[in-house]
Design a protein around this nucleic acid. Structure first.
Length: 981
DNA sequence: ACAGAAGCTTA
DNA sequence: GTAAGCTTCTGTT
């Protein structure tokens, strides 16, 4: 082996188990021999070898071996007799397959390596070292964490089933420590599968954090007394020996006296006849056919195949046919149903213009081979000048990640007219690089230089920039020091035009609907599944076709969609409520919020303990260790074996184990359901919040940056994801503790400001209900007033149950009330609920009128509008199916209220930054939770900030709408979100 | 490995 | 009864 050679080591034993479990269990040969795992193994090995020949993917092995465990007894059992002692025997139908899989390996002409007393992992470690010393690189085909300690400059891993390469960054991302510290991490966490003890109570998150703090395991054990948390400190001190022996167990031995040397692993081509012979014996017909095809096209003999391996890049790459589907797509005629059916009215200029532009854009054929690739500054400058000339540039940023806070620029596409588009690659890598990544390709304009030319254009007030989902590009560009303006966003225009229609607002849906065109899919250029690569690995010609097409399509969509805004009277919705919010949200996402790791980690420990205790108690009560998290198992036990009363079935025929039902059983005095409900709460909090949130802390900013979607809901609300910070617990004391982890930086406070009863206020305004308007004007308790009106009870000394029922009705109205739903909510008979509603409408006839008007309007127009003109479509409102129709009616009633409230807070957000700046305040808006805004500001400015925030929020409807009901905002400041809320 | 169901969190 | 997103389990690829 020499420098530049590349060794593939397949973790054969790992492969066997994964193949066995990933495949349907009952694959048998005609004589009954179980061969499912053998089949999976052969398929994977074949795919791996085919993929490996594809030099586009980047790695061509020169050496190849498959490594197996020899037996279960190894030197580790001498160190620690319990090692792997809890391993049950392999499944019966897997046992005969071990030998077959070794034979399969030989049939593939691959070395089959194993050694008594050592695990496959030790042999892999040894060969990695030998390869490294010889100057070669190694790829380990496995995803086993036990092997991650070997990853480094010359050693990478590859998971063939997930098609994922695992290098140093991936190890750090997954485990929070670099590969060389994996041993220490595993020593702390242990491994229940292999029976490595570790330190009880220390999981991967805690271990990573401790190792970061103390450097390594020895440092940690030596200074364990410094750990603040009592339980953790005591556990580590008490289990020092276990940690040490665990480290020995997980440390791979890289000096096994191996019999075969690397030179024995030189890769030979598959011996077609030999392999086919084996596969036929196994009755793997489809793989036999594939192998036969692959080998016969190369003249069917060993020599010819061997040549193919050497020159796979020239003639047999997987992309030979790439031009064909492209042409086919291109040649397709635009679909008939693309909006041209709408006939423009006489004299309706915007409509006419819309139709004309649509006609032009849609009929002009999209030719993705016509796009230019810009590879020198002079050409780039010419394109920039052209965009200045036309005053319009659609652009599309290509970056390394879907998360704009983590993404690095790879290139950018721009379009100045339909069909006239170009791609500027900045940092594409060579296709045949190894795991370390190929070198940057020649003839690209480096990011800095390209951005220096592009920045004046992107910031030019006289050039409109157009993008699809512009917030993503905005966040990235902002990180590169560019403030893109002015701009339009085709996704948002579509959202304003068509919220609620069945098509989405993504580029593919829009291209299909408006242009009758299907753009190249990302996976068509990056490869799907098997051979997918980062966009920076994509061949520049293909990258150009894809990225430039997106810019071209975006421009065409803008030409079609923008005029429709005016035609439908939706310009102001777009310009007041949508577009200006984009940079506001981009800034909020970039700022992020501080989350205290320590608090979450402590909570996580507490929750784990609580859950474990409940688990034991539950097992005691049912006398069996079932999976409590499985509603199926739980239902079978509770209502089947234990025969608890009141069981009901879900629509799939399973026993329902909903919290409501379990609560009812608990109320009847059953002990078990209570514990299950409690267990669910604890595990929910742990898995969704305390365990998940730390993973979202950005490595550089140390803050959590959520992502807001502007066009995700039908009503105009925002949504939050990755992580969702709009559903952080608040109702229970236990859950609220999670909010204490959301903190202000030192010297700062969090300010939370939320609208009080905004949707009911909107209802009182739009439905013109005198009693409710008066109640809100008086600052009265709205639910108590409602109850008082309905039941003729004075507000003073009102029983809480009476108020509770009125409150449920008020909420019910907002949700488009039904007797069924109200009955459910209040656990009362439907008759009774029906009477409540009747009585409510007698007292508040305006609300019944409002509901009927809304339904009639929706039925007539197919949409409803908020008071600011946002349009929400309900295409199924005329459905002949009564339950679908009723659902759409309720949703449309709700949409006017929820959507208006969403519009109001949007208006507040759009104005907020300027208002703060004008007041010379440094407060920064961080989060939005539908009716709440969270800010961070320096201590000294808290008192001055609150009135400004309140003023902007309470007057947000003005001047567009002067509400007949005052808006009220509660605001307070504290060090954490729990206390501020 | 992925999709859907069930369940639970928020406004 | 409205609007969302995330995790776990389960059956199927």
């Amino acid at each position: 082996m020499k420098k530049g050679d590349h060794l593939f080591l397949v973790d054969g034993s790992g492969y066997i188990f994964r193949a066995y479990h990933a495949l349907p269990p009952l694959t048998r040969k005609s004589d009954g021999l179980p061969v499912g795992a053998v089949s999976g193994f052969c398929n994977m090995l074949w795919k791996l070898m085919q993929d490996a020949r594809n030099t586009d993917v980047g790695i061509v092995p020169t050496h190849f071996a498959v490594i197996f465990d020899y037996s279960s007894k190894t030197f580790r059992n001498d160190l620690y007799p319990e090692y792997k002692a809890n391993r049950s025997a392999p499944p019966e139908d897997l046992i005969p397959q071990f030998g077959l899989i070794r034979q399969a390996t030989r049939a593939f002409n691959l070395p089959c390596i194993e050694m008594e007393g050592f695990e496959a992992d030790d042999l892999i470690a040894t060969y990695c070292r030998l390869a490294c010393e010889a100057g070669g690189d190694t790829t380990i085909i496995s995803s086993d964490k036990d092997l991650m300690q070997l990853v480094g400059a010359t050693v990478g891993m590859y998971d063939p089933m997930k098609d994922r390469q695992i290098g140093v960054p991936e190890v750090i991302e997954k485990w929070g420590v670099p590969p060389e510290k994996m041993v220490d991490l595993q020593a702390l966490t242990g491994d229940s599968v292999d029976n490595v003890p570790g330190v009880p109570g220390i999981g991967p998150k805690t271990a990573a954090q401790l190792l970061e703090q103390f450097g390594d395991l020895d440092g940690l054990l030596a200074r364990a007394g410094e750990i603040k948390q009592d339980k953790r400190r005591e556990s580590i001190i008490a289990n020092t020996d276990k940690a040490r022996v665990s480290r020995q167990l997980v440390t791979l031995k890289n000096d096994v006296p191996v019999a075969e040397g690397l030179d024995d692993f030189v890769l030979h081509a598959p011996d077609g006849p030999k392999l086919i012979g084996f596969l036929k014996t196994m009755e793997f017909t489809s793989l036999t056919r594939r192998v036969a095809e692959a080998t016969s096209t190369e003249a069917g003999d060993v020599q010819a195949v061997a040549v193919t391996v050497e020159r796979a890049d020239s003639a047999h790459g997987p992309d030979v046919g790439a031009g064909e589907p492209v042409m086919a797509r291109n040649g397709a005629e635009p679909s008939e149903s693309n909006g041209t059916t709408e006939t423009p009215k006489q004299g309706d200029t915007p409509s006419l213009l819309a139709a004309l532009r649509l006609e032009r854009a849609a009929t002009r054929k999209i030719d993705i081979s016509a796009y230019q690739c810009i590879r020198d500054i002079a050409t780039l400058k010419a394109w920039v000048a052209e965009a200045r000339e036309t005053g319009i540039a659609a652009f599309d940023v290509r970056a390394t990640a879907a998360d704009p806070m983590q993404a690095e620029l790879i290139g950018m596409a721009m379009a100045t007219a339909p069909g006239r588009a170009a791609y500027i690659p900045f940092s594409h890598k060579s296709g045949n690089g190894d795991l370390l990544g190929g070198g940057t390709l020649e003839n690209q304009i480096p990011v800095r230089e390209a951005l220096a030319v592009l920045k004046p254009l992107l910031e030019d007030k006289s050039v409109l920039k157009i993008a699809q989902n512009l917030k993503y590009d905005l966040v990235i560009m902002s990180r590169y020091g560019i403030d893109v303006a002015p701009f339009d966003d085709t996704m948002l225009i579509s959202y304003v035009l068509d919220a609620g229609t069945p098509h989405g607002h993504g580029m593919d849906a829009l291209a299909d609907k408006w242009l009758g065109h299907t753009p190249l899919q990302l996976k068509d250029v990056t490869g799907s599944g098997k051979s997918s690569v980062g966009f920076d690995q994509v061949d520049i010609d293909k990258a150009t076709a894809h990225a430039a097409e997106d810019a071209d399509v975006t421009l065409r969509l803008w030409l079609v969609l923008k005029p429709r805004l005016a035609a439908k009277g939706l310009v102001s919705v777009y310009e007041r409520l949508e577009r200006p919010l984009v940079p506001v949200l981009a800034r909020m996402e970039q700022r992020g919020i501080s989350v205290d790791r320590q608090i979450l980690s402590r909570l996580s420990g507490e929750l784990a303990q609580g859950a474990a205790r409940l688990e034991e108690e539950i097992y005691q009560l049912i006398g069996e260790r079932i999976n409590i998290g499985s509603p199926k198992q739980l239902g079978d036990i509770l209502f089947g074996r234990m025969g608890l009363p009141g069981g009901s079935k879900t629509k799939t025929g399973q026993w329902s184990t909903s919290a409501q039902l379990l609560e009812d059983l608990a109320a009847e005095g059953h002990e078990l359901p209570r514990k299950i409900v409690d267990w669910r709460q604890l595990t929910k909090l742990k898995s969704t919040y305390t365990d998940a949130l730390p993973g979202f802390i950005h490595p550089d900013t140390k803050r959590v940056h959520t992502s807001y979607a502007l066009a995700a809901t039908t009503t105009g609300r925002l949504s939050s994801s990755d992580p969702n910070l709009q559903n952080i617990p608040v109702r229970t004391a236990e859950g609220r503790k999670i909010r204490t982890a959301f903190i202000a930086d030192k010297g700062n406070r969090l300010v939370s400001a939320d609208y009080s009863q905004i949707e009911l206020r909107v209802l009182a305004h739009v439905a013109e209900i005198p009693q409710l308007r008066q109640a809100f004007a008086d600052g009265a308790d709205i639910h108590a007033i409602t109850a008082s009106e309905m039941f003729n009870v004075p507000v003073e000394g009102m029983p809480s149950e009476v108020r509770r029922r009125a409150k449920a009705i008020n909420f019910g109205i907002i949700y488009g009330i039904s007797a069924f739903g109200l009955a459910n909510q209040l656990s009362i008979p439907r008759e009774e609920a029906s009477n409540y509603i009747k009585k409510y409408f007698e007292r508040f006839p305006g609300i019944r009128d409002y509901i009927e008007e809304t339904k009639a309007y929706a039925r007539e127009h197919g949409f409803v509008e908020t008071i600011f003109g946002r349009r929400i479509h309900y295409p199924d409102i005329r459905s002949s199916n009564p339950s679908i129709r009723a659902f759409n009616e309720r949703a449309s009633i709700n949409a006017r209220l929820q959507g208006t409230a969403a519009d109001i807070i949007r208006r507040a957000m759009v104005r907020m930054d300027e208002a703060l700046e004008k007041a010379k305040l440094s407060a920064r808006m961080l989060l939005q939770v539908h009716d709440e805004l969270i800010f961070e500001t320096v201590d000294a400015e808290v008192e001055a900030t609150i009135p400004v925030v309140r003023h902007v929020m309470e007057n947000a409807a003005m001047p567009a709408v002067s509400m007949s009901v005052p808006l009220h905002v509660d605001a307070r400041a504290a060090n954490n979100w729990d206390e501020a809320h």
